[in-house]
Simulated scan of single mutants.
Amino acid sequence: MFSNPSATTSGAEPNKAPNFTHISRPLVHDRTNSNTSSSSSDVSTDAPNPDTSIYPDGKMSLAGISLRAMLLGTSLGLSASMALYLSTVYYTPLWRVPFFIASLSLFHFLEFYVTAQHNTRYATVSAFLLSSNGWAYNVAHGSAIVECIVSHVFWPGQTAAGRMITVTEPFFGSSVSLLLIVGFVLLLIGQVIRTVAMAQAASNFNHHVQSQHQEGHVLVNTGLYRYLRHPSYFGFFWWGLGTQLVLGNMVCFVGYALVLWQFFSSRIKREEAYLISFFGDEYVQYRKVTSVGIPGI
């Protein structure tokens, strides 16, 4: 793709006089050959160096990006189909596990896609957030799956508290936990707000806290940012809690709430210190009229 085109040379020779004549013909200079060679030399000298960041070991590796996108798409399709099958045809409460995996797959794909669409220079392999959050992030999701499986296999059925807050759904007349409904609502709202917030911030959004004021970095106070000063964090927090309610996990719900609250509390405090240094009184006034949307922060 990045190799220089090979120079083509002409094989034609100047016209030769027939042997039976004494007419001399002027020497014809083959300009095609010399121009082609010169052009080839210019191309090889002036061609820009390829962007090595898109090579397999680069931070924007095309191979790494395409592989992750394919795996996430495959995971989303298979897990969503399995969740639908296990919740309708062969009913079992364990449909929650593939549903959770489908939600994770969509979440991580959208993290990269929105970044690539609206802030392309930061569309690195790490923008998928599959490994950049550290080992604890993956342990948390693994623990959520384990709790769901264990609780529904060894303690099937709803708890006494769960039976007290159930409603009858209108289509099949079966009882549905209000916690499950609330979980779906939180998950959906959290994902939509997270994705829209990233898109509206565009080049001003970054997965890493910026300690220096970058060129073109402005204070976004329109759209969702008119009401929430950290809508992407708001979306992530409530999306995480929503997934645990859908899974029916009480232990992991408390764990997620504590860990996410601590993480965003620390991150927002550090980030806002930088934002005040960037924008001064403008950000101080903006902070007075907006909310984080996470209790206690």
Rank of each mutant, 00 (worst) to 15 (best):
S10E: 15
K16P: 13
L27W: 07
V28W: 11
D30H: 14
R31W: 15
T32N: 02
T32E: 00
N33T: 10
N33G: 13
S37E: 00
S40I: 08
V43N: 15
V43L: 15
P48G: 04
P48S: 07
T52C: 04
T52E: 07
T52N: 06
D57C: 07
G73A: 09
T74P: 08
T74L: 15
M82Q: 08
L84P: 00
P93C: 04
V97H: 11
F99P: 00
F107G: 01
H108A: 00
N119Y: 14
V125S: 01
S131T: 15
S131N: 13
G134F: 14
Y137G: 00
A140Y: 10
H141I: 04
A144V: 08
A144T: 09
H152T: 07
V153H: 09
T159V: 10
T159K: 10
G162R: 06
V167H: 00
P170G: 13
S175L: 12
L178R: 05
L187N: 07
I189M: 09
R194G: 03
T195S: 07
A197T: 03
A199K: 07
F205H: 02
Q210N: 09
H230W: 09
H230I: 03
H230G: 06
H230V: 05
V246D: 00
V259S: 08
F264K: 02
F264T: 07
S266T: 13
R267D: 13
S277L: 05
F278A: 03
E282Q: 12
V284Q: 04
Y286L: 04
T290A: 01
T290V: 01
G293L: 08
I297K: 00
